[in-house]
Amino acid sequence: MTKSRRETVTSPRTSAARRPRYPVTREIDEQTRLGEVYMSSLIRTQLRLALFVCTLLACVIGGLPLLFLLVPSLREVVVLGLPLPWLVLAGLIYPAFVIGAWLYVRAAERNERRFAELVEGD
């Protein structure tokens, strides 16, 4: 173990200890690697949310005709005095759309808020 020479400290080494802060918005503006990472994380999060909603929608909407095709007895089931296909397609599906849309809007705005905090905050 070598012993280093003693030195007198005259001032703090500010340049080494504290690099000037570089805001993330500038990383994005200058299209640096880091800015790209931030942007693609936002786009990927929103895309994943959108694809989730679309997949769910495709399963419900695409599944209904398939269900009526494969289980013909379902076409004639009567619920609350109405044929099941009419109850679903002429009634229940509309409030379901609105609820789905409302949940999506909440989730999408939350994603954007998080991104804004990440980029602007520390």
């Binding site: 949310l49 959108a50 909603v53 679309c54 929608l57 909407i61 759309f97 789905g100 849309a101 999506y104």
Partner: peptide, 8 residues
């Protein structure tokens, strides 16, 4: 439903 797809 087209508006739901449009929305997302």
């Amino acid at each position: 439903g087209g508006y739901l797809v449009l929305l997302v």
